[in-house]
Structure formats: structure tokens, C-alpha cells
Computed example of a mutant assay.
Amino acid sequence: MESEFIQIMTVTGYALEAFGVLVVLIGSCLATAVFVRTYRALGEGVAYKKFRQNLGRSIILGLEFMIAGDIIRTVIVADSLQNVGILAVIVLIRTFLSLTLFLEVEGRWPWQKDGPQ
């Protein structure tokens, strides 16, 4: 019974990570399609800025799914101290990437209010 649960959690973790990659891929394709479609209508600067925002949002969302998959696989499946340490480093790197991408896309930190600063 326990081995079945661990196997299910392993598959769930990998599925979440695969879904995160899929989110990044589909988001990148959609952002590129929107950019190509609106490039002439919006102008070079505006279209490029929107492209970067859409691309950044898809990367941020994909990273969140990848972090969730890592957490599930490490905490449930391979719960050694070394694996938890590796997970901590991975989560810190991905969180740093998410925060900096959010700042780049939105022009503010996640804890700041919307609107002009």
C-alpha cells in the first residue's frame, strides 16, 4: 500500500513538472503568435513590451508548477535530508527567477499595490 502511494506521488510530481514545461511551451507559442499578429498594429515598442510580458507570465506560471512537482516528489517520495537540501536550493533558485521575472513583467514587486509607483 505504501509503495503504491509513493509511486502515485512520484507520477504526480513528474506530471506537475511536465505540465509546467507544457505551460511554458504553449505560453511561448501563444505569446509569439500574438506578437507576430499585433506587431504592425501596435508598433514595435508596444508589441515587444506586450510580448515580453506574456512570455514572462507563462514562464512564471510554468515555474510554479515545476516547484510544486519538486516539492511533492522530494517530500513524499525521497525524504532524506540531502534531498530536502537539494529541494531547498532548487526552490530558492526558482523563486528568485519568479520574483525577478515578475518585477520585469509587471514593473513592481508582487507585494506592492497595482498602479503607478
Rank of each mutant, 00 (worst) to 15 (best):
F19G: 09
F19Y: 09
F19A: 14
F19D: 00
F19W: 08
G20K: 05
V21R: 05
L22C: 14
L22K: 02
L22S: 14
L22G: 13
V24F: 06
V24M: 15
V24S: 04
L25P: 01
L25Q: 02
L25V: 15
I26S: 04
G27P: 03
G27D: 03
G27S: 03
G27E: 01
C29H: 09
C29V: 15
C29G: 13
L30A: 08
L30E: 13
A31F: 01
T32M: 14
T32L: 15
T32E: 11
A33Q: 06
A33C: 06
F35K: 06
F35V: 00
F35N: 07
V36C: 06
V36N: 08
R37N: 07
T38M: 11
T38V: 03
T38A: 07
A41L: 12
L42N: 11
L42H: 05
G43Q: 05
E44C: 07
E44K: 14
E44F: 09
G45F: 07
Y48M: 12
Y48P: 00
Y48E: 12
K49W: 04
K50C: 09
F51R: 10
F51E: 02
R52E: 06
Q53K: 13
N54T: 07
N54Q: 13
L55W: 08
G56E: 03
G56N: 02
G56S: 07
R57S: 10
R57Y: 10
S58M: 10
S58Q: 04
S58F: 09
S58H: 08
I59Y: 03
I59K: 02
I60H: 04
I60R: 04
I60P: 00
I60E: 06
L61E: 08
L61S: 11
G62I: 02
L63G: 11
L63F: 12
L63H: 03
L63D: 06
L63E: 08
E64V: 13
F65M: 12
A68Y: 08
A68D: 02
A68I: 02
G69P: 07
D70H: 13
I71K: 00
I71Y: 05
I71C: 07
I72P: 04
I72Y: 01
I72G: 04
R73Y: 14
T74G: 05
T74C: 11
T74A: 13
V75A: 09
I76A: 15
I76F: 15
I76Q: 09
V77C: 15
V77F: 02
V77T: 09
A78G: 13
A78M: 10
A78V: 14
A78P: 01
D79T: 08
D79Q: 11
D79W: 11
D79F: 12
S80C: 02
S80W: 03
L81E: 12
L81R: 12
Q82P: 00
Q82M: 12
V84C: 05
V84E: 06
I86W: 08
L87W: 01
L87R: 00
L87P: 00
A88I: 09
A88L: 12
A88D: 00
A88G: 10
V89W: 06
V89H: 07
I90C: 10
I90K: 14
I90G: 02
I90M: 09
L92H: 01
L92W: 03
L92D: 04
L92K: 03
I93N: 06
R94V: 03
R94I: 04
R94N: 06
R94Q: 08
F96V: 10
F96A: 15
F96M: 12
F96T: 12
S98D: 06
S98F: 11
S98I: 15
S98C: 15
L99G: 06
L99C: 07
T100E: 14
